[in-house]
């Protein structure tokens, strides 16, 4: 549960003195001030990288999403019109890129990723295993490998949109309203999407808990 994180992040995304400061930075960056642009990027780049890494479970893909997101930001900043917050705009770019990656990966997976090893074993070539440091979190090492596999499996079965909403709500701690804004939809639609995702997971993982 990440309600604490959620409140903090949502507060950052809401209109506030922070938002005013952000708008000032955007204007300065649009005038070509390098320091302002650097400050803007550093407000959200860690979140974007974490989102991409957790969603795609692949270091190289997360790195690529980071580059593509912020290069688009750099090239299009002069047309940013303050229709939403800068952070929301950046997340919108990043999530669209992540969705494309997930969709392509799903298509590839449906097409030809399952290979027979010839020894009665079927391997999924596109399945990626998250790099794990056993020292990182003792709780993680206690979690049974079986449950972890089951979670990976059910996450892979979610639609890209469900996966993204779940990721943003559970791990990034974004409020549903903010998620709706990022995805260009309503809070209600984001809520339904999250509901479908958690239902699928509860059904699939019910026996483990």
């Amino acid at each position: 549960m990440v309600t604490g994180k959620g409140q903090a992040l949502s507060a950052m995304m809401a209109a506030s003195p922070v938002a005013t400061e952000e708008a000032d930075l955007v204007r300065a960056a649009q005038r070509g001030e390098q320091d302002a642009f650097t400050a803007l990027i550093s407000t959200c780049d860690q979140g974007v990288l974490r989102l991409a890494h957790n969603l795609l479970k692949n270091e190289q893909d997360a790195f690529d999403i980071y580059q593509e997101t912020f290069l688009r930001v750099f090239r299009s900043l002069h047309v940013f019109r303050f229709d939403c917050s800068f952070r929301t705009w950046v997340y919108r770019i990043a999530t669209n890129l992540c969705l494309d990656y997930l969709r392509k990966r799903k298509v590839r997976k449906e097409e030809s990723s399952l290979v027979n090893t010839g020894q009665g074993e079927v391997l999924d070539r596109t399945a990626v295993v998250a790099e794990e440091n056993p020292n990182l979190d003792p709780q993680r090492s206690l979690l049974s490998a079986e449950l972890r596999d089951a979670v990976e499996r059910v996450l892979g079965e979610l639609t890209p949109r469900e996966r993204l909403v779940f990721e943003m709500r559970h791990y990034q701690g974004l409020r549903l309203r903010a998620i709706g804004e990022v995805l260009g939809t309503t809070e209600e639609a984001a809520k339904n999407c999250l509901f479908r995702a958690t239902q699928k997971m509860r059904l699939a993982l019910g026996d483990f808990i």
């Binding site: 549960m1 990440v2 990027i41 780049d45 860690q46 990288l49 974490r50 890494h53 957790n54 479970k57 270091e59 997360a62 790195f63 980071y66 580059q67 912020f70 290069l71 998250a130 790099e131 794990e132 440091n133 990182l136 979190d137 709780q139 993680r140 206690l142 979690l143 449950l147 972890r148 979670v151 559970h170 791990y171 997971m201 509860r202 993982l205 483990f208 808990i209």
Partner: peptide, 26 residues
Amino acid sequence: RSLHHAMDALESVPPAGLLQASRREF
């Protein structure tokens, strides 16, 4: 609640150095 906690523990954290490497390349 247990399921939520189990999911928390499965968050994959970007390895040390990835953020810096991404920033530098950018």
